[in-house]
Design a protein around this nucleic acid. Structure first.
Lengths: 231, 231
DNA sequence: TTCAGGTTTGACCGAATGGTCAACTTTCGC
DNA sequence: GCGAAAGTTGACCATTCGGTCAAACCTGAA
């Protein structure tokens, strides 16, 4: 049902025209598919599903509209592929929380990784946000199954840490909600943050400055002590 | 330029059909305007500007489409009024940060107030979010002027607290970004939170539980100590 | 060279939707 | 009560936009 499923999302600041992971599957017009999906991600993330025009996506991809509809039968199909890819990226970038270090290190790393994700794929973040705000018509099911399981599983770890007094007594799910909220705000609300700070070079002025603050506040807030690493 | 400017937004759980503040200005069809704006807020907040159908707004307000267009010449006009109102609500609910108490109390109150706002006006929150994610085409100017000033002003207070060692050394603006992110996530990402927690009664199960955690994490994270109140 | 499959393209179509309008009804000051 | 202004309504129009299509155009295998 899905189709194209390796992640074709590319970090915002690309250098060459396209740069994909696996060297395989570079069949002639598969490259087109990539161009289209990439363009669609940009447009959908700014205009939402309804605001986006197939024609505009086509222009972004430097293709005639007819061509886009040749690769993706309908606008919805295209949207589905795009959002599915975003969710995939999201879910596995969620990654594992390292259990072989202290809670403080594990969560610091997690936050840093999540923040990097917002930085490198801001459009993906915004698209995800729009989907959810609109009631997650497409990805709702995945949230209810995969994401929920993930949270439940990691929640157990949090609870253990809490029993051991290595983390404050916060409802684990809410700890995640807060982490996600803070890290994603830098992508989703970029416009607002630019407006308030007057930043010109967002990445340099904002992310570099925010990263340590964000980690510090959350780590301290979640009560993650600076443990002595004893072997 | 704006027009209708008292806040006609109503908390989500209304009891009667309508309940507005000032008893004045209840001219015949001003009530209609309210109904329309209210309906429009709901629809716009879920579908975004482009996804919303004038006809659907009309049905929500139990009026024929023609009537809606009688009060608001165009869909854009209506949107502008709605979003303008949301921003007004936002800006003054931002409120003042009480200076006559300890930083801890002042910020706790602020967070609580902001959280209550998300709880009582979730559609407003989502609408605001969508606007910003889309690049804030309408309210950008206000963010650049009013919101920026507000942050700058309150930032000075934060810095003073920091110099006095009563608050951790966080860039003030970013402290706000984090507070806003966390509090708004409960409105904007309600769908996701429901999906993950399986909550049935969102207000009771989520907000009541989240409030203390959110306040605790942020207060601790921002390094706001529990000061002895000496007179 | 040829043939077949995939690809490209612009012209075209029908439905949906924002907005207009003119006929009609209600409201309200006098 | 009366008349003008305000409000109500459904039929209607113009445009926009997703999607179709058929005619060209590659490209590469035989």
């Amino acid at each position: 049902m899905a189709g194209v499923m390796e992640n074709q999302l590319q970090p915002s600041k690309r250098s060459g025209p396209l740069r994909i992971g696996p060297a395989e599957s570079r069949s002639i017009g598969n490259r087109q598919r990539d161009k289209i999906v990439h363009a669609a991600t940009q447009v959908f993330s700014r205009k939402g599903y309804d605001g986006a025009r197939v024609d505009e996506i086509a222009r972004h991809a430097a293709l005639p509209k007819g061509n886009v509809l040749y690769y993706f039968k309908t606008k919805q199909d295209l949207y589905r592929v795009v959002i599915e890819q975003v969710v995939a990226l999201w879910l596995d970038a969620l990654g594992d929380i390292a259990l072989d270090t202290s809670p403080r290190v594990a969560i610091s790393q997690y936050i840093t990784r999540k923040l990097a994700l917002s930085r490198n794929y801001p459009e993906a973040s915004r698209l995800f946000a729009m989907e959810v705000i609109s009631g997650a018509p497409i990805i709702g099911e995945q949230l209810r199954s995969q994401l929920r399981e993930w949270v439940e599983e990691k929640g157990l770890v949090f609870r253990r840490w809490q029993r051991e007094g290595r983390m404050a007594a916060i409802e684990p799910a809410h700890a995640f909600f807060m982490i996600w909220a803070v890290t994603q705000t830098y992508a989703d609300f970029q416009t607002q943050i630019e407006a308030v700070t007057g930043a010109k070079d967002y990445d340099a002025e904002i992310y570099d400055l925010a990263a340590p603050d964000v980690v510090a506040v959350l780590v301290r807030g979640l009560g993650l002590r600076d443990e002595e690493l004893v072997t």
